[in-house]
């Protein structure tokens, strides 16, 4: 029993961290804490998803926010125009993001290294510019929810609460997904691709389909998060849905905690958001928040490129077996 437990230590640690963040506002009965926890959990979900592509497969997507934004728009549209409920909208957002990832993946996963990164930036900008012109989605002004829609959920207060619980649920799902991928045969193939794609192909890893599935898996949850995020937000517009900076923040969080590990992106996202909260309320750093994040990022890249968990794994080989 204890050996089995230890074997999956990373999963328990990861789920534990997510649960602590999720339970904190419920225990403290504090709506402000709930807002903070919502932001942290959505960051965890986005970073853990991207980690499947970036950390496990080694493909650096600089435009991953496109799935968050696209899922958000599709979800918003189904609620606002088609009158679907939040559950259906969330599914629609996730499926839309997955479909987009599948189609894009067929085309751009042939590119490697910086060319892939550039293509993802280009795609994010192309989709943003397209939606800016797309009348059914409201063009540049976007869409705003009719306040009455929250009535179906017992009013805005209850809707906010529901959205928070959904977010906790999504984060738990993404954590389990991330752990499953990391410890599965499929995941071993992805790791092989990350280390040496040509060698992996020679060893029998069906690289095109493995990469494409990794891309799809890394897109589904961001699409769902987008759908509930904008439902909660009440409005959506291209600038909010596709900010390049969010893409890069996801990468920073992954780097901070440790790319290619299950626990790393969770700790990284929580740490990054906590730090940013602190900087935002501190009168001294308020204006320099972005610059300080920049300094932090540079220090990580230059001195601890493996992130916290990666550093621990490197420093203490004994923990390598269970700390992933």
């Amino acid at each position: 029993m204890s050996k089995k437990f230890f074997q999956h230590a990373s999963l328990w640690l990861s789920l534990g961290t997510v649960l602590v963040i999720g339970l904190w506002p419920i225990v403290t009965h504090n709506a402000l804490n709930r807002e903070t926890a919502f932001t942290v959990l959505s960051a965890v979900a986005l970073a853990s998803s991207l980690n499947i592509l970036l950390g496990y497969t080694g493909y650096v997507s600089f435009g991953h926010v496109v799935f968050f934004g696209f899922g958000g728009y599709v979800g918003f549209y189904t609620i606002n125009v088609l009158g679907w409920n939040i559950w259906m909208a969330m599914l629609a957002g996730g499926l839309a993001a997955a479909l987009l990832a599948y189609l894009l993946g067929v085309a751009i996963l042939r590119l490697r290294g910086a060319y892939f990164a550039l293509a993802t930036i280009g795609i994010n900008e192309a989709v943003r510019a397209f939606i800016n012109n797309f009348a059914p989605f409201g063009g540049p002004t976007g869409m705003t929810l009719n306040f009455k829609i929250y009535k179906a959920y017992g009013g805005a207060m209850h809707a906010l609460q529901l959205v928070f619980y959904i977010m906790v649920g999504l984060t738990i799902i993404v954590t389990i997904l991330s752990y499953w991928v990391r410890t599965s045969k499929f995941g071993l193939g992805l790791l092989a691709i990350r280390e040496d794609e040509d060698a992996a192909e020679v060893m029998g890893v069906i690289t095109p389909s493995a990469k494409n599935w990794a891309f799809v898996l890394s897109a589904i949850i961001p699409g769902m998060v987008g759908a509930i995020y904008f439902f909660k937000n009440g409005t959506i517009e291209p600038g909010l849905a596709f900010p390049l900076r969010t893409s890069i923040e996801m990468i920073v969080m992954i780097m901070l905690g440790g790319q290619g590990t299950v626990l790393g992106p969770i700790l990284g996202a929580a740490g990054y958001e906590t730090m940013r909260d602190y900087l935002l309320v501190s009168p001294l750093f308020k204006n320099l928040q972005l610059a300080i994040s920049g300094v932090l990022l540079l220090l990580i890249v230059l001195f601890i490129p493996r992130g916290l968990v990666g550093w621990l794994r490197q420093r203490y080989p004994k923990v390598r077996r269970w700390l992933i």
């Binding site: 045969k185 071993l188 092989a192 990350r194 992996a200 060893m203 029998g204 890893v205």
Partner: peptide, 25 residues
């Protein structure tokens, strides 16, 4: 062409999983 960041055992498991053996983990 070793898969540097994987352990020696994991390297060999890649061969067993994805090659003709098609083994499970």
């Amino acid at each position: 062409r070793p898969l540097n960041e994987l352990t020696v055992r994991e390297n060999v498991m890649v061969g067993a999983c994805f090659g003709h053996a098609s083994a499970n983990l």
